[in-house]
Structures are given as structure tokens and as C-alpha cells.
């Protein structure tokens, strides 16, 4: 069985991306409050919606990231194949 090593830099990168998603969702919430003229209390009371949105955005970002990763692996394999 092959062992996979999760590096600290990788965890750090994912946390930064997730935080970015939370900030993005909070900004969307703030924009929505301005647009629909509702109470600023919703910054707190809608936190569950913000969390759900942040999670959804994080997962959405995963798709292109995965594709890019697979592409890079493929290109690297092709390169190493031609060099040998």
C-alpha cells in the first residue's frame, strides 16, 4: 500500500482558500443586505447561510483546481516519457 504525505503547506493553502470563500460569502451577504434594505443584524443571524455558501464556493473551486492538477500530472508524465 502506498503512503501519502499531507504536507503542512498544503493544509495551510486549503485553509487560506476556505477563509477566502468565507470572506467572499460574507461580502455577498453584506451586498444583499444593502440591495434588499434588510437589517444589518443579518450579518450575524444569517451566518449559517454564509457558512453554507462558503462551503458551496469552496467545493465549486475544487472542480477547476482538480482539473488543473490532473492536467499538470499528465503533462509531467508526457514530458518524462519523451525525455527517456
Amino acid at each position: 500500500m502506498k503512503d501519502y504525505i499531507i504536507k503542512g503547506t498544503w493544509i495551510k493553502q486549503e485553509v487560506y482558500i476556505l477563509m477566502g470563500c468565507v470572506i467572499f460569502a460574507s461580502l455577498v451577504n453584506a451586498y444583499a443586505i444593502l440591495k434588499f434594505g434588510t437589517s444589518w443584524v443579518e450579518i450575524i443571524t444569517s451566518l449559517h447561510y454564509v457558512a453554507a455558501m462558503a462551503g458551496a464556493v469552496y467545493l465549486l473551486i475544487w472542480v477547476p483546481r482538480l482539473l488543473i492538477k490532473l492536467l499538470v500530472i499528465l503533462v509531467n508524465r508526457l514530458k518524462s516519457g519523451t525525455s527517456s
Binding site: 451586498y31 443586505i33 443571524t45 444569517s46
Partner: peptide
């Protein structure tokens, strides 16, 4: 009562 703004936006 209206839905929260973020729900309205979605």
C-alpha cells in the same frame, strides 16, 4: 416576514 437578504439574492 421577508426572507433574509442573502436568501432573497440567491
Amino acid at each position: 416576514p421577508a426572507s433574509p437578504a442573502i436568501v432573497q439574492l440567491i
